[in-house]
């Protein structure tokens, strides 16, 4: 029996609940959720690649491109939230489209390492750019919302609601894509590329498209986090540990659903911030062992909690 796909409904309800909750949650929680959802967008991109059997260990390249596109546009006076996110996304798409011609030739560890190499090149260039503040980075003024300038709590809330909307749109789009023929190619390519080629499909082209989609999502995520944090620097945008964190959250979350990356991202941020608060000297240890335990107990990620229950029913 084919079970009716409820993912889009779940996504819409979850986003709606989160958006409404934004009006009641304390400010710090709203801010943290905004960042977690923005990073969830990046992880959503990694999910697409992961399903194809590809691991990008340099996805911070596009996260950073999105962030710096916003920062540079800000220096020229562009502040509209929609325009800034669009700009960050487009910048990442262009870069990914160009790099895609090279990187789609590679698989497995070569793909992972090459993507990491690209991100570290960007890191190196930014560190050398004294005009952009080198490793100190520079500040970005807060965004405006269709010409309206918000401040304080309403600014935090505005950023959050825009992010929620984007999460819904991205989740919806990616889910539809994964359900399409091209989306289903993912598993085919992962299992046997030659067979897919014999079906008359160019594997490289399919991967190229997936790579660009993943980059677009990372660009949007980077754009949002640059805007809400108000500061960008290479260490927190492009360094390989940032990419590592995204990969980690992908594994933690599981790749079962487009909702999983956001869930995983929120759990990760919560564990991290409370580890920071209660164990300032050993927070890395707490964070690492909590996540290790989660992965040991749930090898298919947090999302398997939901699919398991379904299977039992």
């Amino acid at each position: 029996m084919i079970e009716k796909d409820k993912t889009l409904r779940t996504l819409a309800i979850a986003v709606a609940i989160f958006a409404v909750a934004g009006f009641f949650l304390p400010q710090w929680a709203v801010f943290m959720l905004t960042l977690a959802l923005a990073k969830g967008l990046v992880v959503l991109g990694l999910l697409i690649l992961w399903r194809t059997g590809l691991l990008s260990f340099g996805h911070a390249l596009f996260y950073c491109t999105g962030g710096y596109a916003v920062g540079l546009a800000g220096l020229w006076g562009l502040t509209d939230v929609v325009a800034l996110i669009a700009l960050g996304t487009v910048a990442s798409i262009l870069l990914a489209f160009a790099l895609g011609f090279l990187i789609t030739r590679y698989r497995e560890i070569y793909f992972a390492m090459l993507s990491m190499a690209f991100s570290m090149i960007l890191y190196g260039v930014l560190v050398k750019s004294e005009v952009l503040g080198s490793t100190d980075g520079f500040n970005i003024s807060p965004p405006t919302f269709l010409g309206v300038k918000l401040e304080g709590e309403s600014l935090t809330l505005g950023n959050y609601l825009v992010t929620c909307l984007l999460v819904w749109a991205a989740g919806w789009g990616v889910h539809r894509y994964l359900q399409s023929t091209m989306g289903h190619m993912s598993i085919g390519i992962r299992d046997n590329e030659i067979r897919v080629e014999y079906l008359g499909v160019s594997v490289r082209r399919v991967i190229h498209v997936k790579y660009v989609i993943a980059a677009a999502l990372a660009g949007a995520g980077g754009a949002i986090s640059a805007m809400v944090v108000g500061h960008i620097d290479p260490d927190s945008m492009a360094y390989w540990t940032v990419s590592g964190e995204f990969v980690f959250v992908t594994i933690l979350a599981g790749t079962g659903s487009v909702v999983a990356p956001f869930l995983g991202s929120i759990v990760f941020e919560l564990v991290r911030t409370y580890a920071f608060q209660y164990t300032p000297y050993t927070w890395q240890l707490i964070l690492g062992s909590t996540l290790l335990l989660l992965i040991l107990i749930l090898p298919d990620g947090l999302w398997s909690l939901f699919t398991r229950r379904k299977a039992r029913v």
Binding site: V229, G230, D233
Partner: peptide
Amino acid sequence: VIDEAGGSTKQVTEFRN
């Protein structure tokens, strides 16, 4: 006491916290 490690994005979050 809060650790400063982790980069500016995390520090902004922890400052708000």
